[in-house]
């Protein structure tokens, strides 16, 4: 008995199985972390490196060129304009999506036969490829053969021939309509789930206390769904910050550079004009800005949760 026990003693002999068990938590996470470093750490380091060199279509100069590219960033008004466009899209689309989504969620909150079918249909735009969504709206917005102008014509009582993707007065509405169409259902779905999880005992208690609906809504329902709302806003805010596909499909940043977002601008610099080092500087700037925004947003949300 004793000799058998000593023979099997675990501490003595090496065994692959025991090694795997002991280091299981590292062995399972290592491959994933390695791959994520490829898209996480590598771009950071590499763009930083490239941004201090001078590589463009004309020359490949890998010597250290100091802060030249970063100085250029500040002189390049097109960069700051594209950043401004991005912020305009975000500032308009986000509240509209939130408001519409919330109204829709309230409509579907109560019992409604066939709710599942409505939800399934409504979620389709959100699940579609953004580039396909852009393509769809390209077809819809066509000035002569698209149905949008036709419908507007019925309402106006006279033929409407708006050049949605070309006319400077209409490109912003066009992109925003497509964006709001695709992502309002996202807000709707998340807020509907959030609203369904609100403890009805709280609202009923307030009703019995005689509180009017708007007061219950502001004082009980909104605070109750705020964590969910904050997450939805964060996800959508970050999405809008990198807005690319719909713009690419509808206007490609035009007319001129009127609708150029930061992602479109970086794409043009890096892959149309081959300003490699300068694009590196843009990318690094975006990473820094985004890190600051995310950290600030997370902090802000944590404060709310307290």
């Amino acid at each position: 008995m004793d000799t058998l026990g000593a023979h099997r003693s675990p501490a003595k002999a090496f065994s692959a199985g025991r090694f795997a068990d002991k280091n299981f938590k590292y062995l399972t996470i290592a491959p994933a972390v390695f791959l994520i470093l490829l898209i996480g750490l590598f771009p950071l380091v590499y763009t930083l490196m490239v941004s201090f060199q001078n590589i463009n279509m004309m020359e490949v100069d890998t010597s250290f060129s100091g802060l030249m590219n970063y100085e250029m960033l500040f002189e390049e008004s097109r960069l700051w304009l594209s950043l401004g466009h991005t912020l305009i899209f975000t500032a308009i689309a986000l509240p509209i999506e939130l408001g519409l989504g919330l109204l829709m969620a309230l409509l579907f909150l109560e019992r409604l036969p066939g709710k599942q079918i409505f939800v399934a249909l409504l979620v389709l735009p959100t699940m579609m490829s953004p580039i396909v969504a852009g393509a769809v709206w390209r077809l819809l917005f066509d000035n002569r053969y698209g149905p949008i102008n036709q419908i507007l014509g019925w309402i106006a009582g006279e033929p409407v021939t708006i050049l949605w993707t070309i006319n400077p007065d209409f490109v912003y509405p066009a992109i925003l309509i497509a964006e709001v169409w695709q992502w309002t259902p996202f807000m709707f779905l998340i807020l509907l789930a959030g609203l369904s999880n609100v403890d009805s005992a709280q609202t009923e208690a307030a009703e019995i206390d005689g509180a009017p609906y708007w007061l219950i809504f502001y004082k009980i329902i909104i605070p109750a769904i705020w964590p969910v709302m904050a997450i939805a806003l964060l996800i959508r805010g970050l999405d809008l910050f990198r807005l690319f596909d719909v713009v690419y499909a509808l206007t490609q940043g035009g007319p001129g550079t009127m609708t150029e977002t930061i992602s479109v601008y970086a794409y043009v610099q890096g892959f149309k004009q081959f300003e490699t080092s300068f694009t590196g500087a843009i990318a690094f700037l975006v990473i820094i800005m985004l890190t600051v925004i995310v950290i600030y947003a997370l902090k802000k949300m944590e404060l709310v949760e307290k």
Partner: peptide, 12 residues
């Protein structure tokens, strides 16, 4: 049974 099991896996 007189065998030190501190570092032994549960299965063993």
């Amino acid at each position: 049974d007189g065998e030190l099991v501190n570092d032994m896996r549960p299965r063993d």
